[in-house]
Design a protein around this nucleic acid. Sequence first.
RNA 1: CCCCCUAUAGUUCAAUGGAUAGAACGAGGGACUUCUAAUCCCUAAAUCCAAGUUCGACUCUUGGUGGGGGGACCA
Length: 565
Amino acid sequence: MVITETITQAIKTAVEKAGISYDGDLTLEHPRELSHGDYATNIAMMLAKAENKNPLELAEIIAKNINAPEIANIEVAGPGFINITLADEFYLSQVKEIFTNPDNYGWNTAWQGKKILVEHSSPNLFKPFHIGHMMNNTIGESMARLAHTSGAEVTVVSYPSDVSLGIGKAVWKLMDYGVEKLDEFETVAEKMAFLGRCYAEGTQAYDAAPELEARVREITQDIYEHRDTPAYAAYKIGRDLNLDYFLKMTARLGSSFDGLIFESEAGIAGKEIVMNHVPDVYTESNGAVIYEGEQDGLHTRVFINKDGNPTYEAKDIGLLKLKFERYQPDLSVLVTDSEQKEYYKVVKTSAGKINADWDEKMVHKTHGRMQFKGTKMSSRLGNTPLVADILDAVVEEVNERADGRTLTPDEADVIAIAAIKYTILRTQAGKNINFDPDTSLSFEGDSGPYLQYTYARAQSVLDKASHLDLEPQLEQPDGWQVTDLERYLYRFPEIVDLAFRDLAPHQVVTYVTELAQMFNTWYGNTKIVDQDDPATLYRLALTKATGQVIKNGLWILGIDALEQM
RNA sequence: CCCCCUAUAGUUCAAUGGAUAGAACGAGGGACUUCUAAUCCCUAAAUCCAAGUUCGACUCUUGGUGGGGGGACCA
């Protein structure tokens, strides 16, 4: 049985023995201070009023009746907390767990046999891959990995925007420059930057010159209908370049996709569904088909415009259908920018009236924005930092900091990505991040590289021990003083479970950072490898266990651990 | 005008309604002949304002103020 359940049961039994009937929930938490114990419950304070007793006295009575082999000590403290300290054998048993199943330590089976679908990193082909996409990718990838820890079968999809008026504008600009201009750029990144410029400049030109509208609409239609025209040919070139670049870039960041669902596919499916549900779900208004969100406390949105074309809303309905048909998920997670929050509520609510699963089995998670010193970025204006540029800059910074070490280009890349991902994931998803490339990216203290460094440091210790023929041993030596590490390691599965339930990677960040700090402090005042000290072997076990938990935590964050740095 | 989100050290972030609000950066002071100093130790420094609920509030409620997002044919 999981330790939290064991203790919860022991407390419930104790409450019963104290002659109190109570079958509500009770909170079991880790006290902020390790000196207060490993778990604490506020049950006495909660019951005191109803029982008309002093909370401290009540706590004493309950505490006396709590009994479990895993518990070493129970104390009543503060306003009526019952503090529980676990037994040395329990800590040891958990370190053994880590050794038994290292690569899956922390995972559980709550969703075994079920399917979870995650959609993230959906690009707009022709728009550059900028920092906002990186936020989405980082957060989405981590949520997908959290889903994996639950034992579920996880499928990851992306939903590229391959048709839109905006793309028509970009293609117009591309043709205006001449498609052959693409050949002037050597690297793919430069070609991408150029296409991004076409998108921004095409939009500007369109806004400034109304006479362009007819031509742009024609191009857009060429794309929709795959007409054999120069515009469609130009579009194909740009689209394929972008898609290829997108897949390579996300792979570099550590993501892969099991499937792509294109906006053009979803549009066709969506229009049909929406039309089939007029007037029971959607209604006609001013020539358009809308959903009246006011009936649900939301706002009205247009699903099919007066030209008969599906808007993004209808496309999202089509997307839902395709997702549920193709993958039959028990839970479908969508990760987008928070600007789509209110919008998606309308889509989701209306979708639920067509198929209840589309609402009930669907979770929309949003992430905040990167704000650059208060300036909202806008990819449309083309002044947004591109992921490629940011990575280059950070890699350069990493190499400067390497300070005598030899880093391979891959290692520098992995460290740079860790630094960026950490800044994104440390904050609760949904909140905006104030990003200043000069100061936000840290390589010291709370940072991705700090975690990587701590892991590498642990490996280095193990390495040294190994050369001395010293191997970790799972046995607490006589007179062993339990360390903070042991009292923290066993919490990892709890943290992972909590983080999955809320799809909140930042909880993993916080935990792994604290664990790393504990390890480094321990490292600082303990000589781990000491041939004359028999406790060395158990210290090596702790070192190995800690490294493993850091590595597993980093995996959830989508950050690679380095064996040395 | 309406709806949603948000406000914590100088800065960037933590804190299932609990005990003395934690880290990191920056500032000041220390620690490498010893397992990796991208590290560690010490010091100073914070809950937007006003009411309310509660044994107990950064957390919940109401009203302000500042910031962000959204509000019919963009995505």
